[in-house]
Structures are given as C-alpha cells and as structure tokens.
C-alpha cells in the first residue's frame, strides 16, 4: 500500500472509533445524566436513584474507561499500519 493510501485508511478507522466512543460519551452524560434523568431515577441502584448516579458518578467512571479503550484501540491501529514507534 502506498503511504497516502495507508494514511487514508488509518484516518478512516480512527474517525470510526471516535464516533463510536463519542456517542457513548454523549449517552452516559447528556443522555442518562440529563435528558433521561427523570425516567432513570425511577430505578434504584442501592441507595442511589440511577439518573442522579449517572450524573454524579457513573458518567465520570465511563469517561475514564473511554480514554483507556481509545488508547488501546489506537495502539493496536498504529501497529497495524506501522505508525507505532
């Protein structure tokens, strides 16, 4: 594969990862923590109402996981295309 071809494919996969991860990012915070809060609050998670829990705990935990998943995916992708160092 020519370098520019490789770069194009690499970029496309990167954009796909980004859109999936950012969709989750949006869902847990703006979705569960804000827009759907009332509906989720009818469900209890221990002493927490679920919507409230997502707004003050759950979203943050998911954010941390998202970054580490991205790091993992990109390291793998870098290797596949030989862009790793």
């Amino acid at each position: 594969m020519a370098v520019s071809d490789k770069a194009k494919k690499y970029w496309k996969t990167n954009l796909r990862y980004l859109s999936i991860l950012l969709a989750i990012w949006f869902l847990v915070s703006y979705g569960f923590g804000i827009l759907l809060k009332e509906q989720l609050d009818t469900i209890k998670l221990g002493g927490f109402k679920l919507g409230f829990w997502f707004a003050q705990q759950g979203s943050i935990i998911v954010f941390v996981l998202l970054i580490f998943i991205y790091v993992y995916l990109m390291n793998r992708l870098d290797k596949k295309y030989g862009f790793n160092e």
């Binding site: 950012l22 915070s29 923590g33 804000i34 409230f52 003050q56 979203s59 954010f63 970054i67």
Partner: peptide
C-alpha cells in the same frame, strides 16, 4: 452535576 460531568468529560 454540571461541574462534575463538565470538568471531567472535557478530557475525553
């Protein structure tokens, strides 16, 4: 919660 989500979500 705006501060909790807002000041962490930016890192993503």
């Amino acid at each position: 919660s705006v501060y909790l989500m807002g000041w962490t979500g930016g890192y993503v």
